[in-house]
Design a protein around this nucleic acid. Structure first.
Lengths: 191, 191
DNA sequence: TCGCCTACCTGTAGACCAGTAGGTTTCGTT
DNA sequence: AACGAAACCTACTGGTCTACAGGTAGGCGA
């Protein structure tokens, strides 16, 4: 058995899957999950719909892969997170409207009944709020300068990030997302 | 011509239309706009899908009616709006998860390309931000206690409201939407 | 009473969609 | 050279969707 060649086959397959996930991200951004047809995703990577089903046996499996990709994406080690880095994250997002649009669309859909991403987002927000609390506690201690606890501030922080994304996606000319977020951070930071 | 009877016919028709719009709100909350089939809405009011099309000739027309209903809903005269009333609005919303879910789902979908509600939400947010600026200026003058202008605060206010709604819809047990919103208001109000 | 309008209905066209069945080609391994 | 698996494809099933076409029944005004 030649490891080199065996790997190259596996690698190529893995690359194909990544390609497909990337295409799925795009199509979901454009049409939402419900509106994203397997055929549309397949066409974007030069496959037939059935060829795509060879890599992901169901549409749901493809969605799972998309969500896992996202998890990997912002799985930055907790220690490197600091409040000032949040501003850079928002700035970074402002340069990648595609990704933001994908997950804003998915978040919106996920509140509907029985949506396959609902559990994911519920769990994710719980984690993110917790993580934010930690960051805030490290930065400010048990009370922010304005008197709120980190646990009560975290939902607001998350809400501002998401809410600004929708306003910005709908009307990027009128909404300065990074600027507004910095405004919010100063709101938290000053006493 | 008997006005009384003519009116009663028109009234009955208008009532039917309102019934349909209400049913559409429910179905959209459950499955989003794309996932909401005319047949599902029709069934809920005891009509066939084609019977429904007699009242709203296209699915789009039904959506327009839904959005118009919403506009009428929060078309409270500007003068009665005050910052302290915003907290009651959020509290009120917390008692009507159905409506919140409908419009959160629609907002999420609206960021996708060519969505029929996109223009509506874009325009709406522009108006709401403006309106919020006015409220804040009336309340605080040209500078909030924290130093921000009303124009820079308004997007944050709107973002917090929307963002909290998503977190709350996904996990009402963990998120105290009205409480968190009050926290944010005190954040604005104290110097 | 006649005719018209409203409020529905059945039937169906024409798309699309996820997923199955069962091929064939390509290619690395033995 | 033979084998087997991976990587696709064609063909199809059974379903759902919006919308159109063309009916019918009942009430209202003339």
């Amino acid at each position: 058995m030649s490891y080199g060649d065996a790997m190259s086959a596996r690698v190529r397959s893995e690359e194909r899957r990544a390609e497909i996930v990337r295409a799925a991200l795009e199509v979901i951004a454009e049409r939402g999950y419900r509106g994203a047809s397997l055929a549309a995703v397949a066409e974007r990577v030069g496959l037939t719909q059935q060829g795509l089903l060879h890599y992901f046996p169901t549409k749901n499996a493809l969605l799972v892969a998309v969500l896992e990709e996202r998890d990997q994406w912002d799985a930055v080690p907790d220690t490197t997170w600091r409040a000032d880095l949040l501003a850079s994250l928002v700035e970074y997002n402002a340069m990648r409207p595609g990704i933001v649009q994908t997950f804003s669309a998915l978040l919106g859909e996920s509140v509907t009944e029985g949506h396959p991403a609902r559990a994911y987002f519920t769990e994710r927000y719980r984690r993110v709020r917790e993580s934010m609390s930690c960051i805030l506690r490290t930065e400010y201690g048990d009370r922010l300068p304005n008197g709120l606890t980190p646990e009560r501030t975290a939902p607001l922080l998350v809400a501002v990030m998401d809410g600004l994304q929708y306003q910005w996606l709908l009307d990027p000319e009128s909404v300065d997302m990074p600027g507004a977020f910095r405004d919010f951070l100063t709101l938290l930071g000053e006493r």
